[in-house]
Design a protein around this nucleic acid. Structure first.
Length: 251
DNA sequence: AATGTACTCAACCGCACACAA
DNA sequence: TTTGTGTGCGGTTGAGTACAT
């Protein structure tokens, strides 16, 4: 309080504490900060977390950034202890946010063998991909991502390479906010600015077109490398359902 | 009352990144 | 370019507590 939030490694020295700076920082962020909300989460807050998680995944710090007075640790604990269970009770898969009935579909004996069928399936989260694509041109740089995608393996988003953001700004319905303050960790690697009302479908948000744009964009990544050349004209004017259908076909 | 189980929450750990030297 | 340091994030752990048996 006396010297402001700054060099945490100096805090235990100044205060003569038997703690490391990292531990002091954590204690401040999760407990001592005066702007923290106390008490349990309201129903509204829980629904907001579910909505944000659907879009952001386990990016607790980014979720917390949308909820003043709540910490990432607090939200993470709530999710793991309570919200995951609530979603399952509602018949929703907490990882994909899709109905469980879609995931637990019966085995088709004419397709894959049972072992292959039961193997973990990659989860496609277009927003996750998109999050890492700020300042990236996957049309030219993310061939590796596309191959992983095409092989049905999990995505390794760390393998995205950076170059320009050409091509991104032309996508309809999407706004970009390239990060400029490198010191701001809450902004690191991220980019889609999110408002709570948008998560709940504010009137101005057209999620259908956003999703369609993102999925269309991913599929174009394949088209440009020739793998899907024969279908290249089919990607004009895709709907969300079309895109998800194509994605499933690719898997 | 004793024991087992489920749950919550603060804290720890390992890793990644930014930045300065 | 390399290395060391500081910092933040997400996954995980373990102590404490409430409740059931």
């Amino acid at each position: 309080m006396r010297f402001g939030v700054g060099c945490w490694s100096s805090v235990p020295k100044q205060a003569e504490l038997q703690r490391c700076g990292k531990s002091c920082r954590l204690r401040w962020i999760n407990y001592l900060r005066p702007d923290l909300k106390r008490g349990s989460f309201s129903q509204q807050e829980e629904e907001l977390i579910i909505g944000l998680h659907e879009i952001l995944g386990n990016r607790w710090s980014q979720i917390a950034a949308q909820m003043p007075g709540r910490t990432d640790n607090e939200i993470k604990n709530l999710w793991n202890s309570s919200l995951k269970k609530k979603l399952r009770q509602r018949g929703i898969d907490p990882v994909t946010h899709k109905p469980l009935i879609e995931i637990e579909r019966p085995i088709d004996p004419n397709s894959l063998n049972e072992e292959a069928y039961n193997a973990p399936k990659p989860v496609f989260n277009p927003f996750n991909l998109f999050d890492f694509q700020m300042g990236i041109d996957p049309m030219t740089d993310n061939l590796n991502q596309y191959h992983q995608f095409n092989q049905g393996t999990s995505f390794d988003q760390t393998q995205f390479t950076t170059s320009s953001n050409s091509g991104l700004s032309s996508l309809p319905g999407l706004e970009f906010n390239p990060v400029t303050e490198s010191s701001s960790e809450s902004n690191r690697g991220c980019s889609v600015e999110l408002k709570a009302e948008e998560v709940f479908g504010g009137e101005d948000v057209d999620w259908d077109s956003k999703l369609a744009s993102i999925l269309h964009f991913q599929l174009q990544g394949g088209k440009i490398h020739g793998e899907l050349n024969e279908q290249k004209h089919a990607y004009e004017d895709l709907t969300v359902d079309d895109c998800f259908g194509l994605y499933q076909d690719l898997l």
